[in-house]
Amino acid sequence: MVTGAGAGIGRACAVAFAERGDRLALIARDRAGLEAGGGGTSSCPAVVDLLTDRRNS
């Protein structure tokens, strides 16, 4: 599992793992970055909400 796979270091890691034949789950904030990588990938959008404890804010 590679987080931040849409750009930067995350994408570089994903490419390196893929080149050595690893099977990957890629996670990014938007679909465009993942799909720009090509390489036989498919995307499955998901909405993830992170709750914050605001009692001490």
Rank of each mutant, 00 (worst) to 15 (best):
G10V: 01
G40L: 09
V15I: 12
R11M: 05
V47K: 13
A18N: 06
G10E: 02
V48R: 05
V47A: 13
D22C: 07
R20V: 00
V15R: 15
V48K: 11
F17K: 09
S43E: 03
A28G: 10
S43V: 05
D30I: 03
T41W: 11
I27M: 03
L50P: 00
P45D: 15
A12E: 13
A12P: 10
C13M: 14
D30L: 10
N56V: 02
C44V: 13
R20G: 01
R54T: 04
G37K: 08
A36V: 01
I9D: 03
A32M: 06
D53P: 01
C13R: 10
V47I: 00
G10P: 13
V48L: 12
G10C: 09
E19K: 14
L51P: 09
G10I: 00
D30A: 15
R54H: 11
A28K: 08
S42P: 12
N56A: 13
I9A: 10
L50S: 12
A32R: 15
P45Q: 14
R11I: 00
L24T: 08
A16S: 05
V47C: 07
A36T: 08
D30C: 08
R20D: 00
V48Y: 13
C44M: 13
F17S: 01
G39T: 04
A14G: 12
R55K: 09
G21S: 04
G38W: 11
V15W: 07
